[in-house]
C-alpha cells in the first residue's frame, strides 16, 4: 500500500483539482482530506457520511470568579497573554489559551479549571469512487495537526482492512503543523506549483520541509503556460535538486467549469488538461512500483 500526499506550500495552486481527479483514476484506494481547516475535496467527490466522530483537541482554562482572589499569579506565569486583567477581574481569553495548565497549577486557591472544548468532527464516508476520510476543524480552533493525524490513521486503517493499493491525501497549504502532520512518513509527496514568483518561492520552502522529514518529492507545474520563463525556472530548480517534474498542466477554463459543476476534471471533459492529469497519474503509479 502506498500513501501519496498532494501539497503545495502556496494555496490555490490546484491541489484539490488534482487530488479529485486521482480519486477517479486510481483503482482500489482510500481518499483522505487533510486540509482540515478549509476542506474542499468533498465538493468534488460528494461523500455520503457513514460515521461521524467528535474531535476533542485541547481543553482550555477558565477562572471560577467566586473562588478567585485576584492575586494575579496566573497572569504572571502565562506566556501566551491569555489571562486578561480587566482591573477588577481576571479571565481567560479562550482564543489565546493553549491549554498548558500552568495557570491552573499555580493558582493558590484552586480557582482555575479546564473546559473541554469540542474542536471539530471527523467522518468516515463513502463516495462513488471509494471510501473517504475527512474532517472539519472547529471554527478558530487549534491542533489541526492532531486532527490531520487522526484522518490519516483512519484512512490507513480502512486501507489495510480493504487491502487498498493507495491512500491519496489532499494536503493543506503552508509549511506548519498540519502540513508536517500530512507529510511525515508518506511514500510520495506531490508538490503542485505554478509559474509565479510566489509559487516558486513557496515550492522551495515546502521542498526543504519534505527533505527535512526525508519524504520523496515530485513536482507538477500547474498553469505552466501562464509564464513559460518561470516554468523553465521551476524545471531548472527541480533538475538541480534531482526532483522529477511529473507533468505540465496548461491553464484551462474547463478546470474552473468542472469545479463549478463539482465534477473532477478528468471526468468532466477530455481536453488537454485532463489528458495531462491522466498521464501524470500513470507516471505516479509507475514511479511507485
Amino acid at each position: 500500500m502506498k500513501e501519496i500526499v498532494i501539497i503545495s506550500g502556496k494555496g490555490g495552486t490546484g491541489k484539490t483539482t488534482i487530488t479529485a481527479s486521482f480519486g477517479v483514476l486510481a483503482k482500489n484506494k482510500v481518499m483522505a482530506d487533510c486540509d482540515v481547516d478549509a476542506a474542499d475535496l468533498h465538493l468534488m467527490l460528494h461523500p455520503e457520511i457513514k460515521e461521524r466522530f467528535e474531535f476533542k483537541g485541547m481543553s482550555k482554562a477558565f477562572i471560577n470568579q467566586e473562588k478567585c482572589t485576584r492575586c494575579g499569579a496566573c497572569e504572571k506565569v502565562c506566556r501566551f497573554d491569555a489571562i486578561i486583567n480587566t482591573g477588577t477581574n481576571f479571565y481567560v481569553n479562550q482564543l489565546s489559551c493553549e491549554g498548558c495548565r500552568v495557570c491552573m497549577n499555580i493558582c493558590p486557591v484552586g480557582a482555575i479549571g479546564l473546559e473541554d472544548d469540542s474542536n471539530g468532527e471527523w467522518y468516515i464516508s463513502e463516495t462513488k469512487y471509494g471510501p473517504m476520510v475527512h474532517a472539519k476543524l472547529g471554527i478558530a480552533e487549534e491542533n489541526s495537526g492532531k486532527l490531520v493525524s487522526i484522518v490519516r490513521q483512519q484512512a490507513k486503517n480502512i486501507a489495510e482492512e480493504n487491502g487498498a493499493d493507495y491512500i491519496i491525501v489532499d494536503g493543506p497549504p503552508g509549511i506548519g503543523c498540519p502540513v508536517i502532520s500530512s507529510l511525515t512518513g508518506v511514500d510520495l509527496a506531490l508538490i503542485v506549483t505554478e509559474p509565479t514568483f510566489s509559487g516558486i518561492h513557496d515550492m522551495k520552502r515546502i521542498v526543504e520541509v519534505a527533505n527535512r522529514f526525508s519524504v520523496p518529492v515530485k513536482v507538477i507545474i500547474n498553469k505552466y503556460n501562464i509564464n513559460l520563463e518561470n516554468s523553465a525556472a521551476i524545471e531548472k530548480f527541480s533538475e538541480m535538486n534531482q526532483i522529477q517534474v511529473l507533468g505540465h498542466m496548461p491553464f484551462s477554463e474547463s478546470v474552473i467549469e468542472s469545479i463549478t459543476k463539482g465534477i473532477p476534471v478528468v471526468e468532466f471533459c477530455n481536453d488537454e488538461v485532463s489528458k495531462e492529469i491522466i498521464s501524470i497519474w500513470d507516471r505516479v503509479v509507475e514511479s511507485l512500483k
Binding site: 490555490g12 481547516d37 476543524l137 478558530a140 487549534e142 493543506p172 503552508g174 498540519p178
Partner: peptide, 13 residues
C-alpha cells in the same frame, strides 16, 4: 495566512 485555524486567528485578532 490561508485557512481558519490558530495562525489565522492570531493574525486577524
Amino acid at each position: 495566512p490561508p485557512g481558519t485555524s490558530c495562525p489565522v486567528v492570531e493574525s486577524v485578532k
